[in-house]
């Protein structure tokens, strides 16, 4: 089997892809519809894109969403990394499993509950200490950090478990104080996980509608909130145009990320190949070296003042 693709499997693949992409394709097609009524084709046009770019409201919602996503991703990465480090490196203590479970709870908590509880928190905080005086960007950012951070913590913890503790121990053994070891060894090794966590937190925030709607106040509309509120009043062609742009941006982003990853992988493979071929050459040289002369005299003794002259015999 395998040479000729089975008709059944091939049609299943087509069906699956169609299921995934037909809705999006329709959206893209109708974004170029001249007609104001979405389901009625009125000829090709880019008028809705023009409408979109001229809309103050959309621009400000987009900027708000991006600002929140950036802040959220950064804070969530810092806090999530700290939590992940603690979970992975604190060792055995009573209730460790409970803590580990608790950090993952926001992942499975219904968003409605998270949103509601945060709204309640902000309202009671306001009545007790007078802050936050009004809900908006700050409250949405805080709300997003609370759940994004859990995702980052999980990613970091998994990566740390993969790295193991020996490298940090080796650095300590060589004289690195714990904070120094964190900077020199742990964080550089975590870099891929940090980037992944940051990106995930960024997209989670950009995506979120439910929690943002709960904790937002008057005047602060994120892009998903704006889209949702507009579509509630009926399908609108300018939103189709907006969605098409988002699809394009995401597609380009995914393509670039994939290309970078692929290139990195190829580079690594090449390095490895070069290294292995080089090694065989050099080890050959070393062997010759080994037999031809005694290298014990290569290092003048006075330079190596590590120990004492006396050394017990082996037998």
């Amino acid at each position: 089997m395998g040479k000729k693709p089975s008709v059944f499997l091939f049609s299943m693949l087509c069906f699956g892809l169609a299921f995934l992409y037909i809705p999006m394709a329709m959206l893209v097609v109708y974004s170029f519809n001249y007609s104001k009524l979405v389901p009625v084709w009125g000829g090709f046009s880019i008028r809705w894109y023009r409408v979109l770019f001229e809309s103050e409201e959309i621009w400000s919602a987009l900027m708000l969403s991006l600002k929140i996503a950036l802040l959220n991703a950064t804070f969530a990465t810092v806090l999530g990394t700290l939590a992940g480090l603690a979970l992975a490196r604190i060792g055995r203590f009573k209730g460790r499993t409970l803590f580990t479970g608790m950090i993952t709870a926001p992942l499975v908590m219904p968003e409605v509950i998270t949103g509601l509880s945060l709204l309640l928190l902000f309202i009671s905080l306001n009545s007790i200490i007078g802050w936050p005086s009004e809900r908006g960007m700050t409250t949405i950012t805080i709300a997003h950090i609370t759940f994004s951070m859990a995702y980052v913590a999980i990613i970091i913890r998994a990566r740390l478990a993969g790295i193991g503790q020996h490298l940090e121990e080796a650095a300590q053994d060589l004289g690195g104080k714990p904070f120094r070891v964190l900077l020199d060894i742990t964080l550089p090794l975590l870099a891929p996980a940090l980037v992944a966590g940051w990106l995930l937190a960024f997209t989670l925030s950009l995506d979120d509608l439910v929690i943002a709607s709960f904790v937002s106040g008057p005047g602060a509309n994120t892009l998903p909130m704006l889209i949702y509120s507009r579509v509630r009043l009926g399908l609108r062609p300018d939103i189709n145009a907006l969605a098409t742009i988002i699809i394009l941006v995401v597609a380009v982003g995914v393509f670039i990320a994939g290309w970078l990853l692929l290139r990195q992988q190829q580079q690594r493979d090449r390095d490895l190949q070069i290294a292995t071929t080089d090694n065989s050459d050099l080890s050959g040289l070393n062997d010759k070296d080994h037999h031809s002369h005694d290298r014990s005299g290569d290092i003048p003794q006075h330079q190596v003042d590590t120990g004492t002259p006396e050394r017990p015999s082996r037998r």
């Binding site: 020996h166 121990e169 080796a170 650095a171 060894i185």
Partner: peptide, 29 residues
């Protein structure tokens, strides 16, 4: 603590720092 002891260890897994080259590894201590 380990970082103040006049003792060094060679780990079974060697524990070489993968993001540093050979010279940087040796120079770390």
């Amino acid at each position: 603590p380990a970082y103040e002891r006049p003792v060094n260890m060679m780990f079974q897994s060697y524990a070489l720092f993968p993001h540093m080259n050979v010279a940087q590894n040796v120079a770390y201590g």
